[in-house]
Amino acid sequence: MTDGVWAAPGRVNLIGEHTDYNDGFVMPFALPHTTVATVARRDDGVLRLHSADVPGDPVELRVADLDPGRRSGSWTDYPAGAVWALADAGHRVGGADIHYESTVPSGAGLSSSAALEVVTALALSDLYELGLDRPGLARLCQRAENLYVGAPTGIMDQTASACCVRGHALHLDTRDLTRRQIPFDLAAHGLELLVVDTRVKHSHSEGEYGRRRAGCEAGAAALGVSALRDVPYDSLDEALGRVEDPEVRRLVRHVVTENARVERVTGHAAAGDFRAIGPVLTEGHASLRDDFAVSCAELDLVVEASVGAGALGARMTGGGFGGSAIVLTEASRSPDVGKAVLDAFADRSLREPRLFTAVPAEGARRLS
């Protein structure tokens, strides 16, 4: 017997990378790709998890036994963590049979993990009548990923999956979760945003991501601010002069300039000047590549090949070390731009990337 079906999307981040754990600004939108959970409530306190995308039998856990110290290191940590976070926050949740099916590419920097957490938390919130609002649900899912999974991510991915609106990009202030929905209809302006999944896998819970976050915290401490979001763009040069460590200095420069780029892109989008966004994307990629050092050869190749073929701009998206890039292009040039990227990968004997057009979709919701 099924009590309901829920869906939560992955996301693409238009601009604002590695700013969310620095209390900064981001601008994601939800993808049509979703994780769907078919759920039946249980009264015995057992959480039974199964995925159509992962071979093997269902995994059974007891809600009362969930604990970050007992995580398995497998995909089930994400939904188990979401249930743990609900219970740890004092919400009365029981067991459930949950079957998952997902079209969100795993390891592509498109927030497949957040979709899994959010769909689980939303389903149990509805089933057990917890009354959680979407920002609160996103906070609990971030806590699950930080403390249960052990990945030091910010709040963007979960908020995008929970709160995005069809046809809009989400301007999010990650300090106070103030949200502004910006109409984002590229097709009406003759444009497309291509996502290029390089198929190079990454994991946020590995050490490099954590090192960048620790470096940002060291930069904030050196500058006497609670987070790098508090460093004014107009005072960046003076601030950089007060940071001794050259690696930390580069991290600070990226975060401060990236926050400014989010505001520029927001202004262009709000004014309907979508073509002006392109160069800002490319500028952001250079910062992620050179200052934050989270790009890779495949992501750099996407940017180089697409811009060389006439795209308006391109950049890596997501945490980095692999994953996906986004390309803003005239719709009429999209086939040529896509071919240029595929040819560039073939010329270097690299695995063929996956390309698709990104259209802003609906956030998490109940389907039935």
Score class of each variant (00 low, 15 high):
A260P: 00
T34S: 07
F29D: 06
D173A: 12
R275S: 13
D197Q: 11
G363P: 08
T120M: 04
G154C: 11
L350A: 03
V196T: 14
D176H: 13
L110Q: 12
R261S: 12
T120I: 05
R253G: 06
L140G: 03
S226A: 15
A364G: 11
E330A: 15
P183C: 11
V54I: 15
A364P: 14
A311R: 11
E298N: 07
Q142K: 14
D237C: 02
G318E: 06
V337N: 10
A311W: 03
L127T: 03
G190T: 11
H254A: 10
F274S: 05
L116F: 14
W84H: 13
L172Y: 02
M316S: 07
V93N: 12
A269I: 13
P353V: 10
A87E: 07
T159K: 00
D230R: 09
L137D: 02
V46F: 00
A121P: 06
A331P: 05
L223C: 12
L177C: 04
A361P: 07
N13P: 11
G215L: 02
S306Q: 10
T153F: 01
K339I: 00
F292C: 07
H204M: 11
G45T: 09
H50T: 10
G69H: 06
R143N: 03
R212G: 09
T282N: 10
M156R: 08
T257P: 00
G310T: 04
V256K: 10
G320L: 04
Y21P: 08
A7T: 13
L312V: 08
G81V: 12
V59K: 12
N259T: 13
L116T: 14
E217L: 10
D133A: 11
P335E: 07
T103H: 02
T2W: 14
S226Y: 01
R70I: 01
L132E: 04
A331L: 03
S51Q: 01
N13E: 05
V307N: 10
P32K: 06
H268G: 00
V119N: 05
V54H: 13
R354H: 12
T76V: 14
V165E: 14
S349T: 09
R212W: 08
A325V: 03
A30N: 08
P183K: 13
E206V: 01
D300W: 04
S205D: 14
V195N: 07
L49N: 12
F25C: 00
T38Q: 14
V196I: 15
T34G: 00
E17W: 06
G167V: 06
G136N: 10
R242S: 13
D3E: 04
S74T: 15
V119T: 14
F274I: 05
R179S: 13
S51M: 01
A138H: 02
C216M: 07
V243K: 08
E263W: 12
P152Y: 01
R289G: 02
T174G: 06
F29C: 14
G24V: 11
A358Q: 09
R92M: 01
L140T: 05
